[in-house]
């Protein structure tokens, strides 16, 4: 089976598995876990889109949280159903994303990482100080549920709703990556000077990446808090900023499947370790996995089949002495 087939069948298998999962597991705790995992797939994909344009953010929790707060507040003020408020809330995240992008687009990797990291802390500070009357300070506020618990099977409906949004997000990102915009993103990432020479305006495209990524991250945040039902400023913490980075690198940086594979596999590992009774050590284990992946498998899990194929070819070449030399 070649790799193209593998990815095609893999995609179909994942979608089928996701579609029948709640029927098979029928355990509310697990359904809730898988729902949260789907939300993180959106979040990780959003981060990945920004990284695809060469910008590694360490403060994506800011957009996640802004989308969440904005959606909760809009739903409360306008009396809007949460499912619509989500899209307005992510719009707010996108606008702020473009604004912070304006400071970041001319920065080098390190500075960008520091500024985004700091931005999340500034947002948290503002949330608990100036905006405290609106946001409830450290106590947080309640957010309306995505679907009223009075609806029968509301958890199942919510799951399929979020699954649809997740698939929609991935299809959208696939379309963006394939389009001229995606080409411009990778051109800027690989060599900004050459990209500029071929008529690409790096500032414009980087801002675009920031806006789109912030929008999707905000949507993930809004979905999460409407799913959980309340929101606190903890949402801006470094933990939430680092998770998408970890998921994406583990799965495969800059690939469409990477965030999905990384989130699913790491969530399973994470919850498995929790059940096995690990607390702090599971962070240590995830950290070691992350370091090992960066050093030994820079293409992530999705790059593993190709790695294995290369390795097998190399080995079979060795078994037939002189074969490589003859071909040359």
């Amino acid at each position: 089976m070649d790799r193209e087939q593998l990815s095609r069948y893999g995609t179909i298998a994942v979608i089928v598995a996701a579609a029948i999962a709640p029927i098979v597991i029928s355990n509310l705790f697990l359904i809730n876990l898988v729902t949260l995992m789907l939300i993180f797939v959106i979040f990780a994909s959003a981060w990945n889109l920004l990284a695809y344009s060469g910008q590694g953010s360490l403060g994506h929790a800011a957009f996640f949280g802004i989308g969440a707060y904005a959606s909760a507040l809009i739903a409360g003020w306008l009396g809007l159903v949460p499912i619509l408020a989500i899209f307005l809330g992510s719009g707010v995240a996108a606008i702020i994303g473009v604004l912070i992008g304006l400071t970041c687009v001319r920065l080098r990797e390190w500075f960008l990482a520091m500024v985004t990291f700091g931005f999340a802390i500034i947002v948290q500070t503002i949330t608990v100080s100036i905006l405290a009357p609106v946001t409830g300070g450290w106590d947080g506020i309640a957010a309306p549920r995505l679907l009223s618990p009075s609806i029968p099977y509301y958890q199942l409906i919510e799951y399929y709703l979020i699954l649809a949004l997740t698939i929609g997000t991935i299809v959208l990102i696939w379309y963006i990556m394939k389009s001229k915009i995606g080409l411009a993103f990778s051109a800027i990432r690989e060599n900004e000077l050459e990209a500029r020479a071929s008529g690409i305006d790096p500032v414009r495209y980087r801002l675009l990446a920031f806006g789109m990524s912030a929008y999707l991250a905000g949507m993930a945040g809004a979905l999460q808090i409407h799913h959980i039902g309340y929101i606190t400023p903890e949402i801006f913490g470094t933990d939430l900023s680092f998770w998408p980075v970890t998921y994406v690198i583990f799965g495969g940086l800059g690939t469409l499947a990477g965030p999905v594979v990384g989130t699913v596999v790491l969530t399973i590992v994470w919850e498995g370790l929790k059940m096995a009774g690990f607390t702090f050590s599971r962070y240590v284990i995830v950290g070691i996995i992350l370091i090992l992946v960066i050093i030994f498998l820079p293409t992530g899990l999705v790059g593993l089949p190709k790695r294995l194929q290369d390795w097998r070819e190399k080995r079979s070449e060795k078994q037939v002495p002189g074969k490589g030399a003859l071909e040359e």
Partner: peptide
């Protein structure tokens, strides 16, 4: 990973943060 790109160094630091912080917590 020296010389494989600045983003890699940043990401590796995140792994180190996880490991060192939680090893200390243990």
């Amino acid at each position: 990973i020296l010389g494989t790109g600045k983003l890699n160094e940043i990401f590796l630091s995140i792994g180190l943060i996880y490991v060192i912080q939680n090893a200390a917590a243990m």
